[in-house]
């Protein structure tokens, strides 16, 4: 094999330049030209007029007040869809984060309703609701189905450095958290954690019934 002037270094350099141009067109320009306008406002039950807002006009976050005059208290993309649990002065809520190409991750956070300070309770975790005995029921080590974790190679790379994340799109660790202390009280690995009967198996039962 003769040494040529066109080296692999040059190929890598061309790949860097080509990637910069292509990512500009595929990611930046697509976002700029996205015509979707969103302005959703979802009150959190059991709080003093707190609500989660998703908007393309205002910053996403937790607002206090009504839809028109609400004041931003905590910036971020928070979920109300699978339940935000209120316990004393704290809200337990899912905080979502998107990567540029669409992997969606979720951390369970605890928000102090007085100071609006946020603390991550568990990473790569989704709060699904409360069980019959009051504990928070979460799925740990879980990537959103919209990320197609079982076929998405980026999701697999993402999961390498996570302690609990399993990028197969099916199994997850069902975790029960004491809402007062924020401590994990029970965990069970379930290969069918994402099936439709999750509610009847976990949310309708008490912790003692689940342990049996």
């Amino acid at each position: 094999m003769r040494e040529t002037k066109f080296s692999v270094n040059a190929v890598v350099l061309i790949a860097i330049i080509f990637s910069a141009i292509s990512f500009f067109f595929t990611i930046r320009l697509t976002r700029i030209s996205d015509p979707t306008a969103i302005n959703d406002f979802h009150p959190i039950e059991g709080t003093d007029r707190l609500a989660v807002r998703y908007s393309t006009m205002d910053p996403n976050g937790i607002y206090q007040g009504d839809q028109v005059t609400g004041v931003l208290k905590l910036k971020g993309t928070y979920g109300f869809d699978w339940g935000a649990a209120v316990e004393g002065n704290y809200i337990y809520i899912n905080e979502y984060a998107n990567s540029e190409l669409g992997i969606m991750t979720s951390n369970l956070v605890r928000v102090d309703m007085t100071t609006f300070e946020k603390k991550i309770v568990a990473r790569d975790t989704i709060l699904r609701g409360r069980c019959a005995s009051g504990e928070l029921v979460c799925l740990r080590g879980y990537l959103m189905p919209s990320s197609f974790p079982d076929t998405n190679s980026l999701a697999k790379l993402y999961s390498i450095t996570s302690e609990h994340l399993v990028a197969d799109g099916e199994s997850a660790l069902v975790t029960f958290i004491d809402p007062v202390s924020g401590e994990i009280v029970y965990s069970v690995r379930d290969s069918n954690a994402l099936s439709d009967d999750f509610e009847s198996r976990y949310l309708s039962s008490t912790l003692e019934e689940v342990k049996k």
């Binding site: 270094n9 990637s19 998107n98 991750t105 980026l154």
Partner: peptide, 29 residues
């Protein structure tokens, strides 16, 4: 690979991941 995964978790950016991998390859070469 471990470093790239950690960067991906921190930055949540495939663009950063791509340029880091390619940049490392170029510097290494």
């Amino acid at each position: 690979t471990l470093g790239l995964s950690a960067l991906y978790r921190l930055a949540l950016s495939e663009v950063a991941l791509c340029f880091t991998a390619l940049g490392f390859a170029l510097v290494f070469g």
